[in-house]
Amino acid sequence: MDDTLEIDNLAVSESEDELSLEQMIEVIEEAWLNEKFAPEILPHKTEIVELLLGQITHMEEQLQQVSSTDFKKGIHQMELDRLKYLVTSYLRMRLEKIETFFTLILKQEQQRTEKNEEPYLNPNEFEFAQEYEQSIKDHFESIMSFCPNVMDTEAQIISPNVNSMIILKSKKNIEGITVDDGNAENNDLIDLTSGSQILINYNSIASLLKNGDVHLI
C-alpha cells in the first residue's frame, strides 16, 4: 500500500528567490490574521492566493485517483480542508469588509489609481464592489423614492473606526512609534523589539502593518 500514493507538488517556479509553498501558506496565514483584526481592508494577496488555490486543485485531482482505503488519503484530505478553510475564510473576510465599507473603499481605490498607487482590491473584488454599490443604489431608489433626502450620500458613508485597538506582534526592532492616545499633547513614543507584543490603536501602526514590519494577532 506504500506505493499507491505518490503525490508530487507542482513545480511552482524555477527561480530560486520565489517563495516556497510553505512560505506562501505562512504569508496567507499572516494575511488572514491581519485582515481579521485590521478595521480597514488591506492590500490584496491575489498572486499567492491563486498559486495556493492551484495547488489545492492539483492535489484534489490527484487524490481522486487514490483508492479510499489508503489511510494517507485521509491525511491529505485533512490538509486540503485546512488550507481551503484558510483561503476561503480570508477571501470572505475581505468581501465582508467590501460590503460594509463599499463607498469608502471605492473612493479610496479611485484615489489610488489617480496617484498611480497599487490598488488594494484585486480586479474581481473591485468588480464585486462596483456591482454591490450599484445594486444598493438601485434598491434604495426603487423602495425609498417616496422618502426624500434618504440618499444624502456624503452623510451616509460608513467608514471603519481606524482608531480601534488591536494587538500586534513586531517582526523587527522599531523605534519611535507615536501613540495617538486621544489627547492632543504629549503623545508618547514607544520602541518595539522584535517579537514583542503590544496593544495599541490601529492608526498608530497602520503604515508599519502595510510595510510588513508588524503583524496583528
Binding site: 485597538m165 514583542s196 495599541i200 490603536n201 498608530s204 494577532i217
Partner: peptide
Amino acid sequence: SMYAAVDNLTLMEMNSIRPILPNALDQIYR
C-alpha cells in the same frame, strides 16, 4: 492608558480579553 505591552500573553489569553477590552478603549478614545 491607550497602549499596553502584552508580551508573554498567549493567543488564547489575548482572545479572552477580546472584544471587551479593545472596545472599551475605543470608547474611551472617542
